[in-house]
Write a protein that binds this DNA or RNA. Structure first.
Lengths: 342, 342
DNA sequence: TTGTATGCGTTATCAG
DNA sequence: CTGATAACGCATACAA
């Protein structure tokens, strides 16, 4: 008993096609009929049926968002909500809908993506993760389906796919230089999964800065841990056990840095007096910690916003060559960093 | 150029309707043709077009999720990602898709909901917020569209709508009793927006416990703040300025409690030695703070999971009367609470 | 400027 | 057990 274009047509004494044209705001429909039709639509409470529309248009005006497989991780890390917020903002502006993936394993994700693409559920995809040899990407590339990666794509794909990312090398270099300028010369590096592109890139930046400063790299000061929070705690134990412990630590993730802070606190090592700690991402939590973290804002919201912009662009004209977009970063000085004193 | 049910039919030498039946796994199709058709589907790489299917079925197998309007807030508070995780899990199990609202103002949300409903974009909705006199709810009720609220519905709607919630009165009462048993007798209450149902209910529980213990209520020990984090800081300033400051604080939100902790720290008031602090929600952050928070786990994931279950149920048979579901809570003792000593 | 006719890819009804 | 055929609601090519 839902009211359709035909009902409107009948009531307005026009053909269904005319109503359709009014909806599309077709320029060569007289103002007079437009108004008439519109008022009837209003009167009858007409709403277009998206499914019918999608069917004939072969287009849904919906963007799919694919979360990483680590079933729990994605939503634990404030990074994801924040990108999502950026995506949401852009999508809303442009009247696009958002369809969220729900799969929890790599295999299921691949299936879901295939389904989304084949069944024409979405017009384009945003991948909120990036791993090497991802079959999802191969699939999308083969189908030439519009998509954008948030993060760093695998080396061999840099030219082939669109992505939005930070310059993590440069970012980490800057953070290291900052500590160097604060007179620190034993600076530790605490990273996440050592095979993640973020970790790799940030480590490179760290090393570059040290080398440029003529400081010899010390592998014993670089540690990696998978666990987002506990990893930070473990790292501190390891690092403080070195013969000459560092006076500063660069942590690749704010949450991990919270673990670091807590372990240091429990060891009675005062931050920033006895130890400087800087991290990356500037998630909300980083300003709520005690003491608040000096961190690098990577503009997560913008990453999402731009990604949404890019998919839409690729949806609209799929022929334009893919491109990588780099989003700026900004140092947020708070209370965990301080000049080194003997 | 996409391959349809007709292509499969032709190739398998059957009618399109037969293919359709095979897809639906219709029992009265011979095993023989079923297999033949299936193999052709495989061979041709056939995927059903959801839009066509939705059109004729008038059903999408998609659940819509409506976030609160406070444009930034939702994703800042770890509560939302976590409910979303629960919803996601259930939806995935049952092969339902998730459609996310993107609107940022109350007005826009109403429009978006109307659109989602009228245009048949989703089969049911989950509202991740609950305010009094919400026009969205009136609309959904009037359309008898399946939906579930996560949170406490307005008094006059308790019987009319389905919802999933905690028993916040009982929860707060328990937290208060816990502090009472730790010999605290000046216990402060720090709440969020005073017109939010959560705040109201938790305050009630707090009062109930105090009264039961024969402790006179002291309005000067109850403060409210809208800002999720700064609110905690302000509250501490106010409360510690009282003639006789409290020895314990009940904070209605973990994030706010972080603000509390930080302000206490800066005042050199040691937690838990000089002040006990307990809060609600048990979001990830609460265990990462220094010291880790004693808090009440409200099973956020389960709230989402059950909500998804309930909408599906209401979608499948809309006739069953609405019901309210209460999810359990659990005290998580960590390091911010301690027996009171003079 | 507007109407007619047809198709989008499925499912469902009705025959056979 | 299977095949024709008519919807589902909309958009567009072609006519008028």
């Amino acid at each position: 008993m839902t009211i359709t274009i035909k009902d409107v047509a009948k009531r307005a004494n026009v053909a269904p096609s005319t109503v359709s044209r009014v909806i599309a705001n077709n320029p060569n429909i007289s103002m007079r009929t437009k108004e008439k039709v519109r008022s009837v639509m209003e009167e009858l409470g007409y709403y277009p049926n998206v499914n019918a529309r999608n069917l004939v248009n072969n287009r849904t005006n919906v963007i799919g968002v694919i979360m990483p497989s680590a079933s729990y991780a994605p939503f634990q890390n404030p990074f994801f909500p924040e990108v999502l917020r950026g995506i949401t903002a852009e999508a809303n502006e442009k009247r696009y809908g958002l369809y969220l993936s729900t799969s929890q394993t790599e295999e299921a994700i691949l299936d879901e993506v295939k389904d989304m693409v084949h069944s024409r559920r979405v017009d384009g995809l945003i991948l909120l993760y990036s791993t090497i040899d991802d079959p999802v990407i191969d699939f999308l590339l083969e189908k030439s389906f519009p998509f954008v990666i948030v993060g760093q794509p695998a080396e061999q794909l840099r030219e082939a796919v669109s992505f939005v990312n930070n310059d993590n090398v440069k970012a980490a270099k800057m953070m290291t230089e900052y500590l160097l300028l604060l007179k620190h010369n034993r600076i530790a590096f605490i990273g996440g999964r050592s095979d993640a592109f973020v970790t790799i890139d940030r480590k490179s930046g760290y090393c570059e800065a040290l080398e440029a400063a003529g400081i010899e790299l010390d592998e014993s000061l670089m540690v990696y841990h998978d666990e987002i929070f506990e990893g930070g705690e473990k790292a501190v134990i390891e690092l403080m056990s070195r013969k000459t412990p560092p006076s500063a630590m660069i942590v690749t993730d704010d949450l991990m840095a919270l673990g670091v802070l807590r372990m240091l606190f429990s060891m009675n090592i005062s931050v920033p007096d006895d130890m400087s700690v800087v991290s990356f991402n500037n998630v909300l939590m980083s300003k709520l910690s005690t003491p608040p973290l000096t961190t690098l804002d990577i503009r997560i919201f913008e990453l999402g916003y731009k990604a949404a912009q890019m998919v839409r662009q690729r949806i609209l004209d799929p022929e334009t060559p893919p491109k990588g977009l780099i989003v700026d970063h900004h140092l947020i000085r708070r209370a965990t960093s301080k000049t080194y004193v003997e």
